Amino acid sequence: MLELILTNISIILLILLLSSFINEHTGVQKIKSKKRKYTIYTVLLIVNFIYFFDSYNEDETLLSSNLIILGIDILFILTNFFSLIFKRKGFYGKYMVLGILFLILPFFSIMMFALRGLPHG
């Protein structure tokens, strides 16, 4: 259950980070907070329905969703890193640091799955 809570928190943080980056980067069309909330609700609803209704593969569901979150976050960090180097704007560094900080939750939950596989004793 703790892994599900950590996965949900990391999904919320990632969606908020990506939507605020899009708002900062594109000045023409901003994502409203109502759209952010609906996006978060739908993604969390889909992940939690898959987790609760597929009781046979619930660990694999959480592990794969954490790996997807990890991959998206690493791509986001690399995008901001190269944008910081070539475009020299300050807000790319801020989002790169936030992306690195948000890597903690998916790594922690993946390591909890890895520690579960070790023999006891």
Rank of each mutant, 00 (worst) to 15 (best):
K37Y: 11
I50G: 02
I11V: 15
L16Q: 08
I15R: 02
G90M: 01
G93K: 10
V47F: 06
Y92H: 15
F113N: 06
S109K: 01
M96E: 08
L84A: 14
G121F: 08
F108T: 15
Y56L: 13
S10V: 09
M111N: 08
N57P: 01
F53G: 01
N57M: 08
I68Y: 07
F52S: 05
T42F: 13
F81K: 12
I85S: 06
I68C: 09
D73T: 14
V97L: 15
R36I: 15
T79C: 03
S64H: 06
S55G: 08
T26H: 10
E3K: 13
F102C: 10
N66E: 11
I11Y: 02
L105K: 00
I68K: 01
S65N: 07
F91Q: 06
I69R: 01
T42R: 04
G90R: 07
S20E: 13
I69L: 15
L115N: 14
L84K: 08
L78P: 01
G90E: 06
N80K: 05
K30R: 11
T26K: 03
K89D: 08
I9L: 14
L14A: 12
Y41W: 06
K35V: 13
G71E: 03
P119N: 05
Y38K: 09
I72Y: 06
I12G: 02
F107T: 09
R88D: 09
F91C: 06
Y38L: 14
G27K: 12
F113S: 08
S10T: 15
I68M: 11
Y41I: 15
G93Y: 04
G71F: 12
I68S: 07
L16M: 13
D54W: 06
N8Q: 11
L103Q: 13
S20V: 03
S19N: 13
F81G: 10
N66F: 02
E3L: 07
M112W: 00
I9V: 14
G90I: 08
L6N: 04
F53W: 03
T61H: 10
F81P: 00
F86G: 04
L67T: 10
P119G: 01
L6Y: 03
L78G: 07
I12Q: 03
I11A: 11
S20L: 11
F53E: 07
M112L: 15
I12F: 13
I69T: 12
Y41P: 00
